[in-house]
Deep mutational scan, measured.
Amino acid sequence: KRYRAVYDYSAADEDEVSFQDGDTIVNVQQIDDGWMYGTVERTGDTGMLPANYVEAI
Rank of each mutant, 00 (worst) to 15 (best):
K1T: 12
K1C: 14
K1D: 09
R2Y: 09
R2A: 08
Y3M: 07
Y3I: 01
Y3P: 00
R4E: 03
R4G: 03
A5I: 02
V6P: 00
V6N: 08
Y7E: 08
Y7Q: 14
Y7K: 15
Y7H: 13
Y7P: 00
Y7A: 15
D8V: 07
D8K: 10
D8Q: 10
Y9W: 06
Y9L: 02
Y9P: 00
S10L: 13
S10G: 07
A11P: 06
A12R: 15
A12H: 12
D13K: 15
D13V: 10
D13Y: 12
D13G: 15
D13I: 09
E14M: 11
E14R: 10
E14H: 11
E14S: 12
D15M: 13
D15H: 14
E16Q: 14
V17L: 07
V17Y: 00
V17W: 01
S18R: 03
S18G: 06
F19T: 03
F19M: 06
F19W: 00
Q20E: 09
G22I: 02
G22Q: 05
G22Y: 04
D23L: 03
D23H: 02
D23P: 00
D23C: 03
D23S: 01
D23I: 02
D23G: 00
T24E: 10
T24H: 10
I25C: 04
I25H: 01
V26K: 08
V26M: 09
V26R: 08
V26A: 08
V26W: 08
N27L: 13
N27G: 09
N27V: 15
N27Y: 08
N27H: 09
V28M: 06
V28P: 05
V28N: 03
Q29L: 13
Q30K: 12
I31F: 10
I31A: 08
I31D: 05
D32P: 06
D33F: 10
D33G: 11
G34T: 14
G34I: 14
W35N: 04
M36T: 03
M36I: 12
Y37H: 10
Y37Q: 07
G38F: 03
G38I: 03
G38H: 01
G38D: 01
G38L: 03
G38T: 00
T39A: 03
T39G: 02
T39I: 06
T39N: 03
V40G: 01
V40R: 00
V40H: 04
E41S: 07
E41V: 11
R42M: 04
T43E: 02
T43C: 04
G44V: 02
G44E: 04
G44R: 06
G44I: 02
G44K: 06
D45T: 08
D45Y: 08
D45C: 14
T46L: 04
T46F: 07
G47C: 03
G47H: 04
G47Q: 02
G47R: 00
G47Y: 01
M48K: 15
M48P: 01
M48Y: 14
M48A: 07
L49N: 00
L49R: 01
L49V: 10
L49K: 00
P50L: 07
P50M: 08
A51S: 12
A51N: 06
A51H: 06
N52L: 11
N52M: 12
N52S: 13
V54Y: 02
V54S: 02
V54N: 01
V54L: 11
V54H: 02
V54E: 00
V54Q: 00
E55A: 10
E55I: 14
E55N: 07
A56I: 14
A56N: 08
